[in-house]
Nucleic acid binder design. Structure first.
Lengths: 333, 333
DNA sequence: TGTCATGATGTAACCGGTTACATTTCAGGT
DNA sequence: ACCTGAAATGTAACCGGTTACATCATGACA
C-alpha cells in the first residue's frame, strides 16, 4: 500500500512536506507543491484515514440508534440524518436495536471505544446505565423524535401534545363526541404527550374522558388492526378513532371495513406521521404531517455543535407539525 | 483518557502483559491476570478501537450503498445486513445514495481510504470507474438484490425471471389474456429480468406480446398511480396488471378505483416484494414474497468470506421466492 | 552444580499520518 | 559583505495499541 513515505521519497521531499501540501497547500512553495502533487498522482496515493482518525482522535462517525428501520417514519428521519451528516463530512453507523437492550449497549460502547464521536437516538431510552461512564466524560448524544424528560442532552421533537390536541379537535369539530384512541406502548413519552393532547381537546370541549376508549398498540399495522377490533366490537363504539401512527391507522381501517362498517361514513379514522402510504390508503388518511427529514438534519446539526464544543447546555428544538385533512374523517351522522 | 500504559503502571506490569491479558488470558499467569484485570476495572479502561483498527489495518466496518432507505423493501434488506453484521462483529456504515453518482463515489472511497473493509450494494450500478483503482487491489464488494451481468463480484438475488413468470402465469390461469405490466426504469437489470419472465409466461400460453402494455414506473406509489392511469384510459384496457413493486401496485389500485373500476372485479392487480402494507391494502395484494432480510444476511456472509480471504471467485446465490395469493387478483369475467 | 527447556514477562519497533520545533534558504536593508 | 527575519523545509516525537524478539525465572535432569 502506498503511504506518505513512499510519496515523499518519490517527490524527493520529507513526509512533513507531503502532509502540508495536502492539508494546507498555501504554505508550501509552488515548485514543491507541483512535485508533490505529481508524486501523489503517480503513486495513486490515498491517505489512510484510519491513521488520520487515530491521530486526531476523531472518527467523524455518528452512531444512529433506531428501534426498527422498517418503520417508514424512522426511515425518513434517517434519510435526513444521512444527508446532513454527509454534507458535514460525517458518516452514519446504523444500529437497528429492535428494542433489544444489549444491542443498544453494544452501540453505546462504540463511543467509549472511539469508533464513533457521538450518538443520535430515535427512541428515548437510556441505553447508558449511569455507572457505565466516568462522570467526567459526558456522552455526546442527542435525542430525535422522542425525548425523555430527564435526558440531559439536546433534543429535537414535535410538540406532540399540541399536535394530538389539534387532530382531536378536528374530530370534535366534525361532531364526534365518542372518540377512541389507539395509542403506543405505555412507557413511551411520545404516547404520554399525545394522550395528554387528546385529553386536552376533550376537556376543552366539555367531553368526559372514557379511559376504556384508549387502546394500546405497537405502532404496527397489525396492532392497529387488533386494537380497532376491540373498539368496534363494543356496543357503545366510538364514531371516530385517533391512531398514534399511520401504520396503526391503516390496520384499523382494514379491520373496520372487515367488520362491515365504512370509513369515514360510520367511523372516522385519523393517523399520525403522514407516511408515504397515508395518501394511498382507501380512504386517504387524515393525519398529522411531521417534518421527518428535518428531525434528522436538526439532530445532526445539534450533535455536531456539541462535538465541536460550541454548545454546552442541553437545547430543545421543536419543529412544526401540520394537520393534513384527507378522506378518512368526515362529519358525524 | 485512560490508556493501556496507565493500566500497566497501575498493575505494575508492562503494556505487553496488559494487552496479552485482554487478548489471550490463558498465556499469562493467574496472579498477573488478576492484578491486571483489577487495574482495568479500577481505571475504567476501554481499549481505543481506533488504535486497534489502525494497527490491524481492519476497521470491521461495512459500507452499504442503498438508493433510498425510504423504500420498505430496502429497509428490510438493511435490517438483515445489520443483524448479520453485528453478529459477526462488524458495523454498518449506511449510505443513502439517492441515485446521485457523486454520493456513490464518496462512499466507494471509504474503502480505499480504509474507513471500511468492504461494500454491499443494493443496486447494481458500478460506482467505481475502472481507473479509480489499482488493478492489483480488487474492491471487496457484493451485490444484493440486483446484479449486473458484468459485475466481477459475488451476489445474492432472486430468480426474478422465474418469479415474474410465476405471477404472470397465475394471472393467465385466472383467464386473463390482456395483461399490462408496470415495470421499473429501463436500465435496471431487475426490470429486464422481470419483463423477460412476463414474456416467457405469455409466450408459453400462446399470447402475443403487446409492447404498448408495458409502462415504466419508478418504484413509487405515485408512479404506479400515473402508469395505471395510462393503462386504464385505453379502449382496449387490460383486465390485469402486474406491477414490479408493491408500492407501484398500491398506487395503481388507487387510480383504478378513482376511475370508477373495481379491483379485482374489473381489473386484477399483482405486485412484487410483499411489503408489510401489501396485506393491508384494499384489497390485499397478490404478490411475490422475497426473503428480504435473508438477502441482507447472505450478502454479509459472502462479503465476510471475501474479506477473510476464504473465497476468491465470484459466487452467485439465488434465494427462493413465494407466490402469495390474496384478494387483488380474481378470475376474469 | 551446571545445562537446558519451558513458560512468563519486558522492551521496543511498528502501523501512517500530524505537527512542534529545529534548521535551512533567501530576500531585503545597512 | 553582513545581519535579520520570514518563509520553506526537515527531523522526530507522538497517538495507543500489537507483537516479534529478548530476557528472566523456574524446575527437571544428568
Amino acid at each position: 500500500m502506498t503511504n506518505i513515505r513512499k510519496v515523499a521519497e518519490l517527490a524527493g521531499v520529507s513526509v512533513a512536506t507531503v502532509s502540508r501540501t495536502l492539508k494546507s497547500p498555501d504554505i508550501v512553495s509552488p515548485r514543491t507543491r507541483d512535485k508533490v502533487l505529481k508524486a501523489v498522482r503517480e503513486a495513486g496515493y490515498k491517505p489512510n484515514l484510519m491513521a488520520v482518525q487515530f491521530r486526531s482522535r476523531r472518527t467523524r462517525n455518528l452512531v444512529v440508534l433506531v428501534p426498527t428501520i422498517a418503520n417508514t417514519f424512522f426511515a425518513r428521519v434517517i434519510s435526513g440524518i444521512q444527508e446532513a451528516a454527509q454534507q458535514q463530512g460525517y458518516s452514519v453507523l446504523l444500529c437497528n436495536t429492535l428494542g433489544r437492550e444489549e444491542s443498544e449497549a453494544t452501540y453505546a460502547k462504540m463511543v467509549t471505544t472511539r469508533q464513533a464521536d457521538g450518538v443520535i437516538q430515535l427512541r428515548a431510552y437510556n441505553p447508558f446505565p449511569a455507572d457505565a461512564f466516568a462522570p467526567d466524560t459526558p456522552l455526546p448524544m442527542v435525542n430525535a423524535c422522542e425525548v425523555l424528560d430527564e435526558a440531559p442532552c439536546s433534543s429535537v421533537k414535535l410538540d406532540n401534545r399540541a399536535a394530538a390536541r389539534a387532530i382531536t379537535e378536528h374530530l370534535i369539530g366534525l361532531g364526534h363526541r365518542r372518540i377512541g384512541m389507539i395509542k403506543g406502548p405505555r412507557r413511551s413519552p411520545l404516547t404520554r404527550d399525545r394522550v395528554a393532547g387528546y385529553c386536552d381537546a376533550l376537556e376543552a370541549a366539555g367531553i368526559a374522558l372514557d379511559e376504556s376508549l384508549l387502546c394500546p398498540g405497537k405502532f404496527t399495522p397489525h396492532s392497529g388492526y387488533e386494537a380497532a377490533g376491540m373498539l368496534v366490537a363494543r356496543d357503545d363504539r366510538p364514531s371516530a378513532i385517533f391512531c398514534e401512527s399511520d401504520e396503526m391507522a391503516i390496520g384499523a381501517i382494514q379491520r373496520i371495513k372487515q367488520e362491515g362498517l365504512r370509513v369515514p361514513d360510520d367511523i372516522s379514522v385519523a393517523g399520525f406521521d403522514d407516511i408515504a402510504f397515508a395518501s394511498f390508503s382507501d380512504p386517504p388518511l387524515t393525519t398529522i404531517a411531521q417534518p421527518a427529514e428535518a428531525f434528522g438534519r436538526e439532530a445532526v446539526a445539534m450533535l455536531i455543535e456539541v462535538l465541536e464544543g460550541r454548545e454546552e447546555g442541553a437545547k430543545q428544538r421543536i419543529l412544526p407539525y401540520e394537520l393534513v385533512i384527507r378522506g378518512s374523517t368526515a362529519v358525524k351522522r
